Amino acid sequence: MSATTRRCFAVDLHDDPAQIARYRAWHAAGSPPPAITAAIRADDVRELEIWLVGDRMFMILEQGDQYDPAAKAARDAANPDVQAWDALMRTFQKSLPFAPEQTWVEMARIFALSEQP
């Protein structure tokens, strides 16, 4: 198997318990439309997890070496199912204070236990 790269992202949800519950329901096992999970897997995404605390979300994306962000963006832009899903999800999300008009901001890794003596 080829190498895997892990990337992490953050975004906030609107601080509304009912909206957060709906967002969680959309992400329960079997709830995302099959076209969405197929589009993710088709781009050599090996694993994708979303974690939630309060109204802050954290996404861990593990990609293979065939993952091409520009090609994925182009395919997603041309995929009406992905566009509809993205539009729906954006109704729940709000930009981080330092990144207006952007969702899922990539984070920088600042520590790895494996790199410590």
Rank of each mutant, 00 (worst) to 15 (best):
D86G: 09
R24K: 15
D68E: 09
Q66L: 14
Q63L: 11
I50D: 04
G64K: 12
A35E: 12
I40E: 00
V45Q: 04
D55H: 13
M59E: 11
V53M: 10
D16L: 08
A18R: 12
Y23S: 06
F98V: 12
G64T: 11
Q83I: 01
Y23L: 06
R90M: 11
Q66A: 15
T91D: 07
A77F: 00
V53C: 11
T37V: 04
Q83V: 05
N79V: 00
F92Q: 05
A35L: 02
T91I: 05
R24P: 03
D68K: 01
A29M: 10
A21M: 06
V45R: 03
Q66Y: 10
F98T: 14
F58S: 10
Y67D: 02
A35R: 03
L52Y: 09
M59A: 14
Q93C: 03
R41N: 14
D76L: 02
P100K: 07
P69E: 14
A29D: 14
K94A: 06
W26D: 15
A99L: 02
I36R: 13
N79I: 01
W26M: 12
A87K: 07
Q83H: 03
I50N: 08
W85P: 02
H27R: 05
P17K: 07
A21D: 15
R24V: 15
D55A: 14
E101L: 08
D68I: 01
R56F: 05
P97D: 13
A73T: 06
W26Q: 12
E62L: 07
A87E: 09
I40V: 10
V53R: 15
A71P: 05
A70P: 04
H27C: 04
K94T: 13
P32W: 03
K72Y: 01
F58M: 15
S31I: 00
L48H: 13
A29N: 13
A74Q: 11
I60Q: 14
I50H: 11
M57T: 14
A35V: 02
D43G: 07
P100T: 10
D86M: 08
A99H: 10
I40D: 00
Q93N: 03
V82W: 04
A18V: 15
D86F: 02
A28D: 15
A29C: 06
D43L: 04
